[in-house]
Amino acid sequence: MKTLVLSKMDVPGLVEALGETARLIGPRKKEHQFVFGQITKPEQLALEYPTTILPPSRQLFPNDEPLVRLRLDDVAASREIVEGEKTILLGVHPCDVQGINILDEVFSDSPPDANYLTRRSQTIIIALECQAPCSPYNLCFDKGTYRLEWGYDLLMIDLGDRYFVFTRTGAGEELIGDLPFFRAATPADREALGRARETQAGSFKTRLAGPVNRLPNALKEAYDDLLWEAVGRRCLSCETCTNVCPTCYCFDVADEVELDLVNGTRCRQWDSCQSCTFAEVAGGENFRPRPSERQRHRLFKKEVYQYEKYGRSACVGCGRCSAQCVASIRLNEMYNQVLGG
């Protein structure tokens, strides 16, 4: 691991240099909010952003992703589409890096998903630590996702006029290579880092009424609680909570046909366990017909099922589902309700 320093004055130069080596994706302003998008000019980059509408993990798992090239007249002519190009994700917050780590685990699990992994294997992540929580709904302090141990190639920490930069992987070091924008960190930089980290730690607070490691059991005990009914009454089944989640990966597959009625593409679309038809079988039986059951499933998938399978939660505490819910369904409130605040 190397410790380096990047002056904020040099960020535009860095953006141009990185843009020449790969497709550069970073936070951009959209109206009064932010989105991850391609950065072709330094002024598009908005590194000082609270959060984005969609998480950066969606860049690796795009909606309407082509999977198979089809010939309607010849099934034997079906050809796989596995795409990926060298991509740099710049300015990814720690919770969102953890979101990508979780998708990595899910899509690497047997049988591995070549479409995701091919794209992922060509992606470099430059993480950016947050200095303060971005919304009242963050659970990143409780979840321990406000800082990062792994899962990134480079990590930047804001020191005011400059960024402290950790390299984590060979790919990260290679990316920096001989770029003139970085210098070795000095004792003064390290001291500044220490102070920044102290301020940062003071600004993040516990939001939950109990420790997060109690969530799996607390939720299981609450399986038949009226809480779900109460949430279900408000839920609009609009699927926003899952679409904005960094770790949701459910999908549907559908064929698109060209007007020649000969060529087509089998594509993968984001889908959601909150959709009223998600668990419906062809015969019409619906195994999760009620919004209350679907909301419960969402939380259980994050905190119970993935905990049992992978030994970790699949909620990174980013707060997007709560912040963007039109019906004001708040994950932190529900967690507190089951933790028995």
Binding site: H32, Q33, G37, I53, C238, E239, T240, C276, Q324, V326
Partner: peptide
Amino acid sequence: SPHAVCTECKTAGNVCLFDK
């Protein structure tokens, strides 16, 4: 489509009108 317009709006990465 069984989905709500919100689904397509989120997919497009739009700022939610309720936020405005």
